[in-house]
Design a binder for these strands. Structure first.
Ligand code: MN
Ligand code: MN
Ligand code: ZN
Ligand code: ZN
Lengths: 134, 134
DNA sequence: TTTATAAATGCAACTAAGTTGCATTTATAT
DNA sequence: ATATAAATGCAACTTAGTTGCATTTATAAA
């Protein structure tokens, strides 16, 4: 009985393999778009405690397993993969129709000329439009 | 006793010239960076009611007097000038040091190539870095 | 296999941002 | 001067997320 991908990843990151984390990570790994807290609560079915879920999202984020996305909706969304900040920069696409948030893996942020005295560290881009599914 | 700029603007937009609105708009017009609800509450000194302030921000936004900015901090910020959406597109600069948010009037939105099936409507850009004052 | 231990979980209580309903006040038009 | 519709203030509410603490559980050492 060899370990699954999500189990290996938890081991690699030095995180305990708990029931909640296994389910959560397995869910993230089979998905191509971002998830909100309530998306996750629904998907996990077996009613995980709110703070447990939020704390795990924070742990995963700190470990570089997932990244947090601010789509300007007022609720944070999370997607599999390390943060765009750490060398994995990419834009996010928000569908105006279904509200789904996608990571645009290919799209690197373009550098913009800022005024004298200002210094750019990173650029975060949100593309708003209609997705392929809509 | 001729009307001030902010009074003229309120008239133009068909908004009643109330005490709160006069103070609020005057404040916005003398500023080069964005303001949060609590920045405004502090600046207005004479303790305006929370819902009154929020309702006026909404009115100003709808009238195109100010625009709302999401700087990913979790609190909305507002700046003088109509929304970047209506033909006035510009990026926003967030200082990592002092948290100040500036409108980068010169910086037009960057067009990025999205995958087949996706359709871009608008692009919102946040530049993170160090501002001229820091 | 048992046991020790540190970390994860669940629960309740809390915070912060923003919204809503409603009674009262005020700006503007007549 | 008065009528009217809109703005204000207050309290109560909502939603997203956080914190403290007692209990449970994953892991590793004995
Ligand atoms: Mn992403
Ligand atoms: Mn702006
Ligand atoms: Zn869609
Ligand atoms: Zn600064």
């Amino acid at each position: 009985m060899k370990n699954e991908n999500h189990e290996v990843l938890l081991e690699q990151k030095g995180l305990k393999k708990t029931k909640v984390r296994m389910a959560l990570l397995q869910h993230f790994m089979g998905l191509d778009h971002a998830q909100s807290y309530s998306d996750l609560q629904t998907a996990l079915a077996k009613e995980v405690d709110k703070s447990t879920l939020y704390r795990n999202l924070t742990s995963f984020e700190q470990a570089g397993i997932i990244h947090r996305i601010n789509d300007h909706s007022g609720v944070s969304k999370y997607a599999f993969g390390e943060s765009p900040i750490q060398g994995n920069e990419h834009a996010h696409f928000v569908c105006e129709c279904c509200e789904t948030v996608y990571c645009m893996e290919g799209l690197a942020p373009l550098q913009l000329k800022v005024p004298k005295g200002f210094k750019t560290k990173k650029v975060q881009t949100i593309i708003r439009g209609i997705c392929a599914a809509c």
